[in-house]
């Protein structure tokens, strides 16, 4: 059996989604107050969970590659379009800070019973339609600053992947310590009791 299986079927999608949704809910990422507390610096769960997951999956993919389980460049790597990725990333950060979710966590919010997640999703549909309506005038910006196809940080810097992995672990550890310090000073991470308390 050769990996990846490149299985794009219904069962594969449901399985991946079930794991994704269950874990995000457990992390507390169906709660917009917990999610946005990251940007108020009082709860660093978004940074901690995300960086840990990136590192675990990145090390796993690296091990799968060096052990020969998967061949080199067997998985999809997104390509940089600098201006569109930078502007789009900033808009998602801004919309997350105001609206309380990103696309994935809005589905988790909906599955946790949050009516505001439903309204956020309606807003996303409107935002997507606005983008489509203005796609032709936006197209030059959308394509600007295109990098080499599927370029990785290690390829750009000309270093082996493990060097980037070590640097990521060091950055995550530093960010984790910094975040925990902020959490202690600012009242600690958002708890389930705070999230579920009745409104005034």
């Amino acid at each position: 059996m050769s990996m990846p299986l490149y299985d794009g079927g219904v069962a594969s999608g449901l399985f991946a989604g079930l794991l994704f949704g269950y874990v995000l809910e457990g992390a507390g990422f169906g709660s917009p107050r917990k999610l946005t507390a990251q940007f108020r610096l009082s709860d660093w769960s978004v940074f901690k969970v995300m960086f840990t997951a990136v590192i675990v999956a990145a090390i796993g993919l690296w091990l799968a590659e060096v052990s020969g389980l998967i061949r080199a460049r067997a998985v999809y790597v997104p390509t940089l379009y600098f201006w569109a990725v930078a502007a789009g990333g900033a808009l998602i950060g801004a919309g997350f800070a105001l609206g309380g979710y990103c696309p994935g966590t809005s589905v988790v919010g909906l599955g946790s019973g949050r009516g505001d997640a439903f309204v956020f999703i309606v807003g996303m549909i409107v935002g997507t339609a606005i983008f489509a309506a203005f796609f032709t005038p936006l197209e030059a910006f959308y394509m600007a600053g295109q990098g080499p196809e599927g370029q990785t940080v290690s390829a750009l810097l000309g270093v082996p992947d493990w060097v980037v992995l070590v640097a990521l672990v060091a950055m995550a550890a530093g960010g984790w310590r910094l975040g925990s310090g902020f959490e202690r000073r600012l009242g600690g991470p958002v708890t389930v009791e705070e999230v579920l308390e009745e409104r005034q």
């Binding site: 808009l91 919309g95 609206g99 935002g127 489509a132």
Partner: peptide, 26 residues
């Protein structure tokens, strides 16, 4: 706020060709 944030995220996700999950995490 949820509706306005959703509009920005919907638009931004198409511009960036992905979101926190597809680009940031994956």
């Amino acid at each position: 706020w949820a509706f306005a944030g959703g509009i920005l995220v919907g638009f931004g996700g198409r511009l960036a060709r992905g979101c926190t999950s597809g680009l940031g995490l994956s």
